[in-house]
């Protein structure tokens, strides 16, 4: 119990410097807007963003849910694809050679140009958004897993072979569990990209969601509401990010303990 409490304290003290920095920035911003008498259409004060955001909380919440849903579905598809591909590549050197350049190429696609096309092809529904998110997040996940599998110690492979383990058993007993820390790192990178990807896809065209909300408010010069939606987006990303640590602690409890010992 005491271990967990010190762990919690350590997490709290770790974020204190960031919070101080954010507070200082907000104070400076508020002071500047008041002192220079900037029009809120150009730059609203943080207080105005907060009060207007609160006043529009129901609209914001109604647009957060669709974004969350798109993120979840898109990231789910991305995870499924990433796993399937990484496992296939791990078992087939031929596939590894064939797919690695394609994977890299998928990252050079200019999403900003592709996303509007996806809307034209697939409409304003879930599919084009899921595709955008998958396109953005699938690469870090697949690469994290592929490299995690491949990082298996040669001696460990030899040990398993000496026990008579088939390729499948080597995978199940050593390569798969050994790749989990690497997978969770990739998961954290992916989940933050996923939220940004969802916002972007909605920005291009959607019936609901934080992205389209920002786009509409920008067009009516409600800069304060755009920024309020940005804050909600940031909170969403951070929450999902923290969630990955909780899942990690459940799935691979040995990982953190091992590192703290070493």
């Amino acid at each position: 119990m005491s271990v967990r409490r010190t762990g919690g304290l350590r997490t709290v003290s770790a974020v204190v410097p960031s919070l101080v920095l954010v507070a200082l920035g907000l104070v400076a911003w508020q002071w500047y807007v008041t002192a220079a008498d900037v029009r809120p259409q150009i730059l609203p004060s943080p207080l105005r963003v907060a009060t207007q955001g609160w006043a529009f909380r129901e609209q914001l919440w109604a647009n957060t849910l669709p974004t969350l849903q798109v993120t979840a579905v898109g990231f789910g598809v991305s995870l499924a694809l990433g796993w399937a591909l990484a496992v296939a590549v791990d078992f087939s050197p031929w596939l590894r050679r064939a797919l690695t350049p394609l994977l890299v190429a998928s990252q050079t696609l200019p999403i900003i140009a592709i996303a509007p096309l996806l809307i034209i092809w697939f409409g304003f529904g879930l599919l084009p958004k899921v595709l955008v998110i998958a396109l953005v997040t699938f690469f870090p996940i697949a690469v994290g897993l592929i490299e995690g599998f491949a990082a298996t110690d040669r001696q460990a492979t030899n040990l398993l072979r000496s026990m008579g383990a088939s390729r499948w058993k080597q995978f199940r007993y050593v390569r798969l569990p050994g790749a989990m820390p690497s997978f969770f790192t990739a998961l954290r990178i992916g989940i933050t990209y996923a939220v940004t990807g969802a916002i972007f896809a909605e920005y291009v065209g959607a019936t609901a969601g934080l992205g389209i909300f920002m786009s509409l408010q920008k067009n009516s010069f409600r800069t304060d509401l755009v920024l309020a939606a940005v804050v909600v987006t940031a909170l969403l990303s951070v929450t999902l990010f923290v969630l990955t640590y909780l899942v990690q602690r459940l799935v691979i409890p040995w990982h953190g303990k091992e590192r703290r010992r070493a």
Partner: peptide
């Protein structure tokens, strides 16, 4: 491989298994 039990230089105990389950790995694989 069957006639030989091989112990490499590193202990190669896997952190995701308890000590008991590390020692049974060869039997489980078999």
């Amino acid at each position: 491989v069957e006639p030989f039990a091989y112990m490499p230089q590193q202990d190669l105990l896997f952190p995701w298994r308890t000590v008991l389950d590390n020692t049974t790995l060869g039997l489980e694989v078999a």
